[in-house]
Computed example of a mutant assay.
Amino acid sequence: MKNKIALVTGATSGIGKACAITLAKLGYNIIATGRRSERLTDLGSELPKSIDYLPLVFDVREREKVLEILGSLPENWKEIDVLINNAGNAHGMDPIQKGSLDDWDAMMDINVKGLLYVSKAIIPGMTERNSGTIINIGSIAGKEVYPNGNVYCGSKHAVDAITKGMRIDLNPYGIKVMAIHPGLVETEFSLVRFKGDEKRSESVYQGFEPLHAQDIADIVEFSVTRPPHVVIADVVVFPTAQATSTIVKKD
């Protein structure tokens, strides 16, 4: 019996990388996508030798490249069982009146349109087979709005709405659709948001223990190992110190 296949976007670091490794340990063959080829190569060295690995280098916001690459997968990689839409970023944290149009474009293009492009390439195969699992990695920013979060929160609210719409549209095909909405997870997220300001990025996670990427991967593992009649439709997960987007107990 051949291994099932999981596709993980944004797999070069953080949650995506942890999900790829976790699913590989479950016996899935892994398709990992990302913009940094050397990191995808490094990821391959961390995966079990018992599984097959296909690294794909592209930016999810580049529609034609996404559709071309995912539309021309080798025959033995076409039947994707699990799609983890993880690729996403936050850019800047300015009030709406001072926001950067480039930052806004980046967040909407990656977080929303990128998720849609990848999904568009993969879902038809799932509907044809009447089988599949889609897990969209959202954020607490998709459930709440906080100061200076404006467009980022908007993009993650869109992920939440798209996930719900997917679940309705794909219900006749027996496809499981879920979203995981983490609170504070210590990854490269804040470093990107604060545009490389390491001191400011590190301060976000000081004084409490944040979630780790593996915590999210553990939820993915639990979700994909449920019996066929069970879908973990929607999960919000915080570190114990966090109560809302803005309330965090720090030492």
Rank of each mutant, 00 (worst) to 15 (best):
residue 153 C to P: 00
residue 49 K to R: 15
residue 241 A to Y: 07
residue 61 R to P: 11
residue 209 E to C: 09
residue 250 K to S: 09
residue 48 P to Y: 12
residue 119 S to G: 13
residue 201 S to C: 03
residue 135 I to W: 06
residue 226 R to P: 06
residue 145 V to T: 15
residue 6 A to C: 08
residue 207 G to N: 03
residue 27 G to M: 08
residue 82 V to W: 02
residue 61 R to I: 11
residue 147 P to L: 11
residue 34 G to A: 10
residue 2 K to T: 14
residue 249 K to H: 15
residue 104 W to R: 08
residue 129 R to Q: 07
residue 225 T to A: 08
residue 31 I to V: 04
residue 190 S to W: 10
residue 167 R to S: 15
residue 105 D to I: 14
residue 24 A to M: 02
residue 162 I to H: 00
residue 144 E to K: 02
residue 134 I to F: 03
residue 146 Y to W: 12
residue 249 K to A: 14
residue 219 I to H: 10
residue 206 Q to W: 02
residue 187 T to I: 01
residue 181 H to N: 15
residue 185 V to W: 02
residue 219 I to A: 13
residue 181 H to K: 10
residue 204 V to D: 08
residue 92 G to I: 08
residue 96 I to G: 05
residue 103 D to S: 12
residue 221 E to F: 07
residue 107 M to K: 11
residue 10 G to T: 04
residue 41 T to F: 00
residue 106 A to D: 14
residue 18 A to M: 11
residue 150 N to V: 10
residue 65 K to D: 00
residue 150 N to E: 11
residue 60 V to Q: 00
residue 105 D to Y: 12
residue 235 V to S: 04
residue 246 T to R: 05
residue 233 A to V: 12
residue 94 D to S: 14
residue 63 R to K: 14
residue 251 D to Y: 11
residue 244 T to D: 09
residue 37 S to L: 01
residue 212 H to N: 07
residue 26 L to R: 11
residue 191 L to C: 00
residue 104 W to M: 13
residue 219 I to N: 13
residue 157 H to M: 04
residue 101 L to K: 13
residue 68 E to N: 15
residue 60 V to T: 12
residue 65 K to Q: 04
residue 47 L to D: 06
residue 236 V to T: 15
residue 230 V to C: 13
residue 121 A to W: 05
residue 208 F to T: 10
residue 90 A to F: 10
residue 223 S to L: 11
residue 113 K to F: 08
residue 131 S to R: 14
residue 235 V to W: 04
residue 60 V to E: 01
residue 239 P to C: 09
residue 91 H to E: 13
residue 190 S to A: 12
residue 119 S to D: 09
residue 19 C to R: 04
residue 202 E to S: 14
residue 165 G to R: 01
residue 130 N to G: 05
residue 38 E to S: 00
residue 149 G to H: 02
residue 143 K to A: 02
residue 119 S to V: 07
residue 72 S to H: 10
residue 25 K to F: 05
residue 245 S to F: 03
residue 72 S to Y: 01
residue 63 R to F: 03
residue 192 V to N: 15
residue 200 R to Y: 03
residue 53 Y to R: 04
residue 234 D to W: 08
residue 55 P to M: 01
residue 88 G to T: 09
residue 228 P to G: 08
residue 169 D to H: 01
residue 13 S to T: 12
residue 43 L to S: 04
residue 112 V to C: 10
residue 212 H to C: 09
residue 5 I to W: 01
residue 202 E to M: 14
residue 42 D to W: 03
residue 207 G to C: 05
residue 164 K to R: 15
residue 76 N to P: 01
residue 118 V to E: 06
residue 99 G to N: 14
residue 134 I to R: 02
residue 35 R to N: 00
residue 123 I to V: 15
residue 81 D to P: 06
residue 225 T to K: 10
residue 5 I to D: 01
residue 53 Y to N: 03
residue 164 K to Y: 12
residue 245 S to K: 01
residue 213 A to C: 09
residue 14 G to Q: 07
residue 6 A to K: 02
residue 237 V to M: 09
residue 163 T to R: 11
residue 71 G to F: 02
residue 138 G to W: 10
residue 125 G to M: 02
residue 75 E to C: 00
residue 192 V to P: 04
residue 71 G to K: 01
residue 121 A to Y: 07
residue 189 F to R: 03
residue 83 L to V: 02
residue 28 Y to H: 06
residue 110 I to Y: 09
residue 76 N to S: 09
residue 21 I to R: 03
residue 30 I to R: 01
residue 122 I to T: 08
residue 133 T to H: 12
residue 4 K to M: 13
residue 20 A to S: 11
